[in-house]
Design a protein around this nucleic acid. Structure first.
Length: 593
RNA sequence: GGCCCGGUAGUUCAGUUGGUUAGAACGCUAGCCUGUCACGCUAGAGGUCGAGGGUUCGAGUCCCUUCCGGGUCGCCA
């Protein structure tokens, strides 16, 4: 039978003992990692979240029935009392931090028995994730997972520490809030009292934190769950945690410097890494043109080169027509790597860029015995030599070209660039490359909706000089928006917000809202802006992504205690699940067949 | 919604061109062992080859459907 504590108190964690404690009577509690049974002498490795302490059970020392020790199994929860003793010279275990000592057990309590776990509680087991997630409580016992959640906790603590010291107030905003058009799909919560009406779980506390600025809180933060009902990815979960920040009486520079200070503080506290400030700032347009991405990984080169002007009038109709239609032709030169791309691998890369909408990809191989390429025959000698000069092509290089609308060219080459870096091992995994991407466009055109949508969100302020262009030239209007990028991942983004009703109405109008629709959806904000709103702005960091990157984890699931799988369900709790008819009735809901 | 990858003892995997009774390691069970720490030794149990259908004399293997997990495009203000 399981026993109770009956007044026993744990002295300390398993690994908080050293040779200084030899002779001390201690009480330890934890899980049985392994048992090595010699009959009248049994060793047990006792595990807690800090590590392992070896217990020695000697028949002549242990009080009570010794057969209880032989009955111990992995993952039993036990409590033991006895003295810390020094190990003999020849029995020292150098692999354990506590390998010089062990606990000579005088008393044993079996607090809880355990079934044989479906997988071993070890770091080196490569158990399939499906099973790990079903038994997440066991998976989380593994030292690697314990470490991940520890570091995550340290990141949150460092952020809080910095924000507290800099005058930010931690204020909670509701989880049951108003559904907002624009942006991601909402998770809806039916109202029992107002049948047919729904709360939405927040995609972000955006409007509420702005209202806190209007209320005069000046500096706000919250480490807060956000919800978006969109498809999952390796770095995307339907519920995730933001470090959400907002400040008043600030412009872009103020927000960036305050927040890069926080990031530097986190890196120092958690990783003991000094981040050089200020962080580099890269305008959006440059990020796209040089890296084909608004979240460039700057740990390696392979930058894009625009060759549109050179190929515009060549005999290669694909390129010339693309340019006539307003597109571009850009190239990546992979220096000295021509021998690493057999024809079959080039074909695979052509298929790769097609994922991103490219219709094809051209290349030039600068071989020792001459140029090989499917396209150079279309060029005159002059055109070819200008091209070679522009892309700095030398013997041994291989150059890839994509021509299409800019969006497709950037997308295809931006992703090709990452693929090439991975293939050629160009990325130094020990480096953390942080930068700001700034000067985003305010709008982007949605082919699907046939209108402009907000690139960041509808509360983002245009640049002062662009206010007049919002309606006349939406594509040429830039925003006071910024993203922070770490190793090619967006770990945060924000903006200076619109702080007058007039401009906010104008923005919503530019997005296609009628005045009535605007007030119906955002009336509370438009109204609040009338009563003295300070200029304000802020940012939100993805805590999960930050933790994932600092830990070098391949998936965001590795830093979330209870994540969801790709179909947005939880394998442990089986959520979501059907509910009782009575619950539906109370909500006035019917499930259609 | 599209594309790609995977599913074989509890776990991780092997399984040849379709061919006898589907194997290994670890784990598990029982026994022995007073210095192990990947303990050792002896014996043993353990399989709906994800599921359903089809082709075939014969299917873990080939085909179709489907379920589950992963990656990704779309989507993610």
């Amino acid at each position: 039978m399981s026993e109770f504590l009956q007044g026993w108190k744990r002295t300390d964690y398993c690994t908080n003992f050293s040779t200084d404690d030899v002779g001390k009577e201690v009480t330890l509690m934890g899980w049985v990692q392994t048992r090595r049974d010699f009959g009248a002498l049994i060793f047990v490795d006792l595990r807690d979240r800090t590590g392992i302490m070896q217990l020695v059970f000697d028949e002549s020392v242990l009080e009570g029935d010794f057969s209880r020790v032989g009955a111990l199994r992995n993952e039993y929860v036990i409590a033991v009392k006895g003295p810390i003793v020094l190990r003999d010279e020849e029995t020292i275990n150098e692999k354990l931090p506590t390998g010089l000592i062990e606990l000579r057990v005088r008393e044993l309590k079996i607090l809880s028995r355990a079934q044989t776990p479906p997988f071993e509680i070890e770091d080196d087991t490569s158990v399939r994730e499906e099973l790990r997630l079903k038994h997440r409580y066991l998976d989380l016992r593994r030292p690697a997972m314990q470490h991940n959640l520890l570091v995550r906790s340290q990141i949150a603590a460092a952020a809080r520490d910095y924000l507290n010291k800099n005058g930010f107030l931690d204020i909670e905003t509701p989880m049951l809030t108003k559904s907002t058009p624009e942006g991601a799909r909402d998770y809806l919560v039916p109202s029992r009292i107002h049948q047919g009406s729904f709360y939405a779980l927040p995609q972000s506390p955006q409007t509420l934190k702005q209202i806190l600025m209007i209320s005069g809180f000046d500096r706000y933060f919250q480490i807060v769950k956000c919800f978006r009902d969109e498809d999952l990815r390796a770095d995307r979960q339907p519920e995730f945690t933001q470090i959400d920040i907002e400040m008043s009486f600030v412009d872009v520079d103020d927000v960036l410097s305050a927040n890069e200070g926080m990031i530097a503080h986190i890196f120092k506290q958690v990783m003991d890494i000094d981040i050089k400030l200020p962080l580099p700032r890269l305008p959006y347009r440059q990020a796209m043109e040089r890296f084909g991405s608004d979240k460039p990984d700057t740990r390696f080169g392979l930058e894009l080169v625009d060759v549109s002007d050179i190929v515009a009038d060549t005999g290669f109709a694909v390129f010339s027509s693309v340019i006539k239609n307003g597109g571009s032709v850009r190239a990546i030169n992979v220096k000295g790597a021509v021998d690493q791309f057999a024809r079959r691998e080039i074909d695979a890369l052509v298929d790769f860029v097609k994922i991103y909408g490219a219709k094809g990809m051209a290349w030039i191989s600068m071989k020792e015995d001459g140029i090989q390429s499917p396209i150079t025959k279309f060029f005159t000698d002059d055109e070819l030599s200008s091209l070679i000069e522009r892309i700095d092509a030398e013997t041994g290089d291989i150059i890839f070209f994509v021509g299409d609308k800019d969006k497709i060219v950037f997308d295809a080459l931006g992703n090709l660039r990452l693929k090439l870096a991975e293939k050629l091992s160009l990325i130094d995994e020990g480096v953390f490359a942080l930068l700001w991407v700034v000067d985003f466009p305010l709008f982007e055109y949605s082919e699907e909706e046939k209108r402009y949508t907000a690139m960041h969100h509808p509360f983002t302020s245009p640049r002062d000089e662009d206010v007049g262009k919002m309606e006349s030239d939406p594509a040429g209007t830039f925003a006071k928006a910024y993203d922070i990028v770490l190793n090619g991942n967006e770990i945060g983004g924000g903006s200076i917000r619109i702080h007058t009703t007039e401009l906010q109405e104008k923005m919503l109008s530019a997005l296609g809202f009628s005045k009535e629709q605007a007030w119906e959806s955002f009336g509370f904000l438009l109204e609040a802006l009338k009563y003295g709103a300070p200029p304000h702005g802020g940012i939100a960091f993805g805590l999960d992504r930050l933790a994932m990157l600092l830990l070098g984890c391949p998936s965001i699931r590795d830093v979330i205690a209870f994540p969801k799988v790709q179909n947005a369900s939880c394998l442990m709790t089986q959520a979501p699940s059907p509910v009782a008819a009575k619950q539906l009735m109370e909500l006035g809901l019917k499930i259609s067949e």
